[in-house]
């Protein structure tokens, strides 16, 4: 108690500044998170609305881990999310740097890059699905016109190609955010440093790896964390474009959790799946932080 009072006195100002943020997080997220944690040890079927959740210990977890399908979905998700994060970050950083170079039409490019991010997700998913359509899609039409035989080519009948097709959409919708943040980050690097580096004889690539990247480290860290988190949870695009098919071969964790929660109505097991997803993402995040800290770190 005394310690608390001392802490408050000493750190009162920063705590006060954090208060508004904590209020929102506290009101909105604390209860749902604790509720999820608690439910994950219970059997709670929404179909039995009148019955209270029944405590079952680790049963939900046991059932998930012993389900072959879970491991299949986890592998799918890992590969898909990994690929998407790499592509998103590479494209985002590249475009961010490009936008930082003054050239005519930069604003136009800035607006253009924003477009895929802005189009409502449901509409975008449906438009893309149509672009990919085997019979009437513009993509097969253009590719065939260019001399490749893509007539009637089906983008969604096998998992690897379907993942590729959806991946393009996911990356397309997430790289603008990365690009814009990188652009903003680049603005914090003063031109003098760059000029000094150039004066020391550093070429463009060396300037990028030796000056730009280290200066952007904190930003890259949070962007990578957020992209990983989002791509690991990806739901909308797959739900609209493949529905997890054909034959459940494009299931990812997001779909798996949804189907357990609102398909099978097993809220307890869905909560356990969510906890597993959380644990995996938390570990990945800590690894990222560790890597970043090997230089100067979070502090």
């Amino acid at each position: 108690m005394v310690a608390l009072r001392v802490a408050l006195k000493r750190y009162g100002f920063p705590y006060a500044l954090l208060l508004p943020a904590l209020l929102g997080v506290g009101i909105l997220t604390l209860y749902p998170l604790l509720n999820t944690f608690w439910l994950s040890f219970h059997r709670y079927n929404l179909l039995r609305l009148g019955q209270a959740p029944v405590f079952t210990g680790l049963e939900n977890y046991r059932r998930i881990f012993s389900d072959e399908f879970f491991w299949f979905v986890l592998r799918n998700t890992g590969l898909f999310a990994g690929g998407c994060v790499l592509a998103t970050m590479a494209l985002g950083v590249g475009v961010g740097c490009l936008l930082n170079v003054p050239f005519r039409g930069r604003t136009i490019l800035g607006v253009a890059v924003l477009l895929p991010w802005v189009i409502p997700k449901v509409a975008a998913g449906i438009v893309w699905k149509w672009i990919y359509d085997d019979q009437y899609g513009i993509l097969n039409f253009i590719l065939t016109k260019l001399g490749f035989d893509f007539q009637g080519f089906s983008w969604f009948s096998s998992a690897p190609i379907a993942f590729l097709a959806v991946g393009v959409v996911v990356v397309g919708q997430s790289f603008p955010f990365i690009a814009l943040s990188i652009l903003a980050g680049l603005q914090a690097i003063s031109p003098e440093i760059m000029e000094a580096a150039a004066g020391d004889g550093a070429g463009p690539w060396q300037r990028f790896t030796l000056v730009t990247l280290p200066m952007l480290k904190g930003l890259l860290l949070i962007l990578t964390i957020l992209s990983t988190v989002w791509d690991f949870k990806v739901f909308d695009q797959i739900f609209i474009m493949t529905e997890g098919g054909p034959a459940q071969s494009t299931y990812v964790m997001g779909i798996y959790a949804w189907m357990t929660a609102f398909g099978e109505m097993q809220m307890g097991r869905a909560a356990a799946i969510a906890m597993v997803m959380f644990a995996i993402l938390a570990v990945i995040t800590l690894i990222y932080l560790r890597i970043a800290r090997s230089g100067e770190g979070l502090e």
């Binding site: 997080v25 909105l28 749902p32 869905a270 997803m277 938390a282 995040t285």
Partner: peptide, 20 residues
């Protein structure tokens, strides 16, 4: 605090939506 605000992002929305 820095980690706490990230935590909520790590949960799929499906399980949060009813309590929310």
């Amino acid at each position: 605090f820095l980690l706490l605000i990230l935590v909520v992002q790590m949960f799929p929305l499906v399980v949060l939506i009813i309590p929310l």
